[in-house]
């Protein structure tokens, strides 16, 4: 009896923290196996690259926690950054503000469609995926929007205190805020409850429509931020390339992190580690001259391994 309990407990621990464990394992492996891995340059590159996926994944975790999915995040990044880039070109802060509001509004629209009109999340966000990408191309004439704003560029490319990239701080703040929202706030408790049993949540007087809309809106806002991060590095926003395939990576990071695909507790730390893990694999392969197709397959294996762990509990139920 006690022995059995010990085993299930261990499994539960693995299940909950598999993303963290895999990330740490791979990190340690790299410190020893990869040349020049332990350096500020690596640190810099890592956070510059991981920040976008991670931001979007945080939003995706909330959406998936409600039992939904948002495949319009990449398009939201494109629309937001193209509009904002135009705002910088025309020196119009109002337009930049509008770019945020518009992307959040589209998030609200997705949430409303899903919760109020019972449209499948995949379908609702598929539509918005086309709409927002189309708008981004329409506004920009399907061409790269280039701007010059040396101060802005410098802010995002110059490391703080000589070493740490701004991205690191942005990411830490975002993760902490979302973590607190989920674990310390009323809203988080309601999101978890709604994701676990929507019918019971409604019976408990939870305004389920509001909850769902909120999650999609937050995803919109985070997608905008991720789009901006992608644009400022190159001082331009290209409507067709920004945010492509982002939804896939964000969904993968969320699932590796342990947020159940059919709704439930949004595991924010898990999601963060999931995004880190994916990024670390890419970097590791890159630094060791592993070819891209092999990288992809390696990623697939790790995703499968993580999901296998999450599946164990379900099957035994």
């Amino acid at each position: 009896m006690t022995k059995k309990k010990g085993i299930t407990l261990d499994l539960a621990f693995f299940k909950k923290n598999i993303a963290l464990i895999l990330f740490l394992a791979l990190l340690i492996f790299n410190i020893f196996a990869t040349n020049n891995f332990l350096s500020w340059i690596t640190f810099n590159n890592f956070f510059k690259q991981v920040s976008r996926v991670c931001l979007v994944s945080l939003g995706m975790s909330l959406v998936i926690a409600t039992g939904g999915i948002d495949i319009s995040v990449g398009s939201a990044m494109a629309l937001g950054s193209v509009l904002a880039a135009l705002g910088i070109v025309h020196e119009s802060p109002l337009l930049i503000l509008f770019s945020v509001i518009l992307v959040i509004a589209f998030g609200c629209l997705a949430g409303t469609a899903v919760s109020k009109f019972a449209i499948l999340p995949m379908v609702a966000t598929l539509a918005l995926r086309y709409v927002m990408r189309g708008m981004a191309k329409g506004i920009s004439g399907a061409a790269n929007v280039t701007y010059t704003a040396p101060k802005l560029t410098a802010f995002f490319t110059q490391p703080v205190i000589g070493r740490v990239p701004v991205h690191f701080f942005i990411l830490v703040i975002a993760v902490v805020v979302v973590y607190i929202l989920v674990n310390k706030m009323k809203l988080g408790a309601r999101i978890e409850a709604y994701g676990n049993n929507p019918v019971a949540a409604r019976n408990c007087g939870i305004n389920t429509v509001k909850i769902v809309i909120f999650c999609y809106a937050v995803t919109g806002a985070l997608s905008w931020a991720a789009g901006m991060l992608e644009a400022v590095v190159v001082s331009s926003a290209h409507p067709s390339t920004i945010g492509t395939d982002m939804e896939i990576d964000a969904i993968a990071a969320t699932l590796i992190g342990g947020t159940p695909i059919d709704g439930g507790y949004p595991n924010i730390i898990g999601t963060t580690c999931g995004a880190f893990l994916l990024q670390l694999i890419s970097m590791m392969c890159n630094m060791n001259n592993v070819s891209y197709p092999v990288t992809l397959m390696l990623k697939a294996c790790i995703v499968l391994a993580a999901l296998y762990f999450h599946g164990i509990g379900k099957r035994s139920r």
Binding site: A189, R190, A193, N197, A200, C204
Partner: peptide
């Protein structure tokens, strides 16, 4: 089971969900 409990949520969260305000 279907309309009352949140199965994968703790007893405490289940118990206090309506009194969060």
């Amino acid at each position: 089971r279907e309309e009352g409990i949140f199965p994968d949520v703790t007893v405490q969260s289940n118990l206090t969900l309506c009194s969060l305000d």
